[in-house]
């Protein structure tokens, strides 16, 4: 929900600001460093547990030195757990592709064409991006169950749609910022709209499309509620649901849970690390709304 055209977003991705050139009192420095250290501990401790427990043979919820083992990762990679990860990948990829492509087409039209009531329509789309997904579950459940769609692919499409309002907004802002000259030239040469989109607009909007795609992926990957309610086939359950099943099982394997949740979290974190190198603003914006 940030304006990607904004200057600041383009600059910041690490969140590490340029140090203030004005050198303050040493007290100020000490105080700042102390504050940061304390906050660092606050941010580190929960993650530290996750890492230590994942390699601990006798893991519990306590923070302690591990009895080193990799058995937890082996347990986490059991076929049914891998299957759940595979389902998450299928669902997230479908949601990403559908959402981004559809949003791009609409965003281009909104950016370049005359559309009646454009302002109100865009405003309505903006509102949709702020609606919590929870409100959709009852009507969607009724609709999907009536149509016999309680499965992975329709749910992926729905997830694409839940990300779409923000994606339209994001991409439109990027297209708004590109100069018209190249497109005009292409149209003068009588190139068709789709061809212009493919060979002129898409390359120039790449950072925006990447942000939108990442947003779509993160949105679908982290989604817990919709797949739980809308996918009835147990073989199609996704990774977060599997992780939750682990957590509420009668025999809790803390090490296995920690290992599985690391494996499950890794794609999103890696995506951020890789993408932040390429598209400065990309992921920052992409992850703004989970």
């Amino acid at each position: 929900m940030l304006n990607p055209g904004a200057k600041a977003s383009k600059e910041s991705d690490s969140g590490a600001p340029v140090p203030n050139p004005v050198s303050g009192l040493s007290f100020e420095k000490v105080f700042s460093n102390l504050t940061i250290a304390v906050l660092g501990v606050f941010f580190a401790i929960p993650m530290l547990w996750l890492v230590l427990a994942s390699v601990d043979r006798r893991a519990t919820y306590a923070l302690k030195l591990p009895l080193l083992t990799f058995a937890n990762f082996l347990a986490a990679l059991q076929p049914e757990n891998l299957g759940a990860l595979g389902n998450s990948i299928i669902m997230s990829v479908i949601a990403t592709v559908v959402g981004t492509v559809v949003a791009f087409l609409a965003a281009y039209s909104f950016s370049r064409h005359y559309i009646p009531w454009k302002g109100p329509v865009l405003l309505a789309i903006l509102f949709l991006s702020g609606v919590p997904i929870t409100v959709l579950i009852v009507p969607m459940y009724e609709m999907f169950s009536y149509a016999g769609w309680l499965s992975l692919v329709p749910t992926a499409i729905l997830l694409a749609v839940t990300a779409m309002p923000f994606q339209i907004y994001l991409i439109k802002n990027f297209i708004d910022a590109i100069p018209l000259d190249l497109e005009e030239a292409a149209f003068i040469e009588k190139a068709g709209t789709l061809r212009v989109l493919r060979s002129v607009v898409v390359p120039m909007t790449m950072p925006g499309l990447a942000s939108a795609a990442i947003f779509g992926f993160v949105n679908a990957w982290g989604s817990f509620l919709l797949p739980v309610v809308l996918i009835s086939d147990v073989d199609q359950q996704t990774a977060p649901e599997r992780l939750y099943g682990f957590m509420s099982s009668t025999s809790v394997n803390y090490g296995g849970i920690a290992a599985y949740s690391i494996i499950y979290s890794l794609p999103v974190v890696l995506l951020y690390v890789l993408m932040s190198r390429h598209f400065k603003a990309g992921f920052v914006l992409g992850g703004a709304v989970r």
């Binding site: 817990f224 992780l243 957590m247 499950y264 979290s265 999103v268 974190v269 992921f283």
Partner: peptide, 10 residues
């Protein structure tokens, strides 16, 4: 960047 389920777990 962590997914909500992981945040809940930790």
């Amino acid at each position: 960047t962590l997914p909500p389920t992981t945040i809940a777990l930790v």
